[in-house]
């Protein structure tokens, strides 16, 4: 069976506000201070990536109020509330707390009066404040939410970083994927995952990682489970790497066409993204490890604008075009004149 991507894993449906706040503090290093007491954030959930600034709703227009989204109160909203007399301020704030909001973030160091905080506490809406500027906070928060709600899938193969290029070695069980990965590690490349690779679609790239369980373990047939990080050290592993090339190992089959020039590019669609695919039939004497390195270097060359297959093609075409009149058809060597020293 040729390499095909698996079905996406069912997307995460919701995340709790307490989890969100905890991860924003730990992973995104955001400074968040709880403004409301009586923690209800464990029972409040975020269902979508989008954020909302509730300016219109505060002003009284709540017909299209997207209240299920995270609400961001920045400078505009705060100044709007501040310019109102106290009683109207409460009324305006009640316009939004009447809905079941998941959480409110006060950005740019803005504050709400104690009266308003009490209203939110009564409505069990957690409020957090941050000194981070509104647009920057929204960018960081969205990036985190997109990651949490991202589409993911699982593929079978060995994921290795070779010269900075993420290569997924795919192929049938027992064909030698782990052995190639081990050989690459021995040569100084880095393992991301063996056997079970999780792929996450992040904007328009695929990020790969191991699973929580299998990270940095590997199975070598006949030997059993080995721990790559303990054996080869920290330099031999990576936690994440973008998937750039899929290398599919197959048994040699006379009938099957293999690419000979490199002018045709095959690809495989994973989670809707096209990833370059290279079929590599295994034959005696073929060093897959070195070929994997060559694939990575060739990918880098192409990335920097040099395509060897195309360069050769251009050379042939200009040679053919130059064949006019008194053209000498005899073979010509690469060097015009051998110098005196016969070396």
């Amino acid at each position: 069976m040729p390499f095909t991507a698996s079905e996406p894993i069912p997307r995460k449906e919701k995340i709790s506000v307490s989890y969100l706040v905890q991860k924003l503090r730990e992973r995104v290093q955001l400074n968040l201070t709880a403004c409301t007491s009586g923690d209800c954030s464990e029972y409040k959930f975020v269902y979508e990536v989008d954020l909302h600034r509730p300016g219109m709703a505060l002003a009284g227009y709540t017909d299209l109020f997207t209240y299920k989204r995270i609400q961001i109160i920045g400078n505009t909203e705060t100044q709007f509330l501040d310019h109102l007399p106290n009683s109207e301020q409460i009324k305006a704030f009640e316009n939004i707390t009447g809905f079941d909001l998941p959480v409110i973030f006060l950005t740019d160091g803005n504050k709400l009066s104690d009266d308003l905080i009490k209203i939110a506490e009564k409505a069990s809406i957690p409020i957090y404040s941050t000194p981070v500027e509104t647009t920057r906070f929204m960018f960081l928060l969205r990036d985190f939410l997109e990651d949490q709600f991202a589409t993911q899938t699982m593929v079978h193969g060995a994921m290795v970083d070779v010269y900075g290029i993420g290569i997924l070695i795919a192929g049938k069980s027992g064909i030698g994927k782990s052995e190639v990965a081990l050989d690459l590690i021995e040569r100084g490349h880095r393992l991301v995952a063996d056997d079970v690779v999780m792929l996450t679609k992040k904007s328009n790239v695929l990020m790969s990682s191991a699973t929580e369980m299998s990270k940095h373990f590997m199975e070598i047939r006949g030997l059993g489970i080995v721990d790559v990080m303990s054996m080869f050290g920290i330099r031999s592993i990576r936690y994440q790497k973008r998937l750039e090339v899929v290398l599919e190992l197959t048994l040699w089959d006379e009938a099957r066409d293999v690419e000979r020039t490199g002018l045709n590019h095959d690809s495989v669609s994973i989670l809707g993204l096209d990833i370059p695919l290279i079929h590599l039939p295994i034959t005696p004497g073929k060093n897959i490890t070195v070929i994997a390195e060559v694939i990575a270097m060739n990918y880098l060359l192409k990335h920097y604008g040099y395509d060897p297959a195309k360069a050769f093609q251009d050379r042939i075409q200009s040679k053919i075009a130059s064949k006019t009149g008194d053209f000498d058809p005899t073979p010509r060597r690469a060097i015009e004149y051998f110098e005196g020293d016969v070396e």
Binding site: M1, S6, E7, I9, P10, Q152, M154, H156, S173, G174, D194, D195, V196, T211, M213, S214, F217, M218, E219, I225
Partner: peptide, 28 residues
């Protein structure tokens, strides 16, 4: 592994190759 058929195991969101020991153990 004695069979030539492809063998996958689905468990919650997981889909692992049933011929890979790491895959199967990942399911826990």
């Amino acid at each position: 592994s004695k069979f030539s058929s492809d063998f996958f195991i689905h468990f919650y969101g997981y889909k692992v190759n049933g011929k890979s020991i790491l895959g199967v153990m990942t399911l826990a």
